[in-house]
């Protein structure tokens, strides 16, 4: 554990809770892509199956359980409890366009040809692109509420901080995980456009609006 990794994890947890709290307190899922949230739930379920057979640390186990339960709760709030507020008409990104390529990539790039390793690789690739339905929705509606922007910023920062963590680990421990690093870089690049808008608009007190 190093500072970058810890800050990345804190940022990740913060993102998850910002989103849950926003939906819960406004009693509304407006502007949130349910499809992205389903993809994140698939990511956590596929990656954290190792909960059943490997123990790394209490911290690790607690975080894994937290991500699984929080993402399931988010999906439940969007599709069941506050279904009436969910903006399904604007949430039209075809998730098979990210599910199928992630699965194919997992069959090509993995550390061993076992079910759990394939699921792990699949989850890494899927996580990189799971935010696309949400970014697509923001582009389609042309704007995002400030809390949604904070959520996206925290979620994007998490993988960016992990990149610093990987650089640090490479030099201090010789640890190098090419699959996670490549996917993590792609994931961070996807947020770059959003980061720019966040800094130039949201941080200056304006609403995030995308030009047509």
């Amino acid at each position: 554990m190093n500072l970058f990794r810890l800050m990345g994890d804190v940022s990740h947890v913060l993102a998850v809770f910002i989103l849950l709290a926003k939906i819960w307190r406004t009693r509304s899922a407006a502007g949130i892509s349910g499809r992205s949230q389903i993809l994140f739930t698939i990511v956590y379920l596929a990656r954290y199956m190792d909960l059943f057979f490997s123990f790394i640390s209490l911290y690790n186990t607690v975080m894994k359980l937290l991500f699984i339960s929080a993402s399931c709760a988010t999906v439940y709030l969007i599709y069941f409890k506050f279904r009436a507020t969910y903006d399904g008409n604007h949430d039209t990104f075809r998730i098979e366009f990210v599910l199928v390529p992630s699965l194919l990539l997992a069959f090509i790039f993995h550390y061993s040809m076992s079910f759990f390793e394939l699921a792990w690789s699949f989850s890494i690739f899927l996580e990189a692109v799971a935010i696309l339905p949400q970014l697509f929705m923001v582009t389609k509606t042309g704007e995002a509420e400030n809390i949604t922007s904070h959520y996206l910023f925290a979620l994007g920062s998490y993988r960016a901080l992990y990149i610093l963590n990987w650089i640090y680990r490479y030099y201090t421990e010789g640890h190098f995980d090419p699959i996670a690093v490549c996917a993590g870089i792609v994931q961070t690049i996807l947020y770059c456009d959003f980061f720019y808008l966040y800094v130039t608009k949201v941080l200056q007190g304006r609403k995030l609006q995308v030009l047509p």
């Binding site: 994890d9 991500f67 550390y111 995980d177 090419p178 996670a180």
Partner: peptide, 10 residues
């Protein structure tokens, strides 16, 4: 060690 032996990150 191969990363697959320890997916110690989240």
């Amino acid at each position: 060690t191969l990363p697959s032996e320890a997916h110690d990150e989240l």
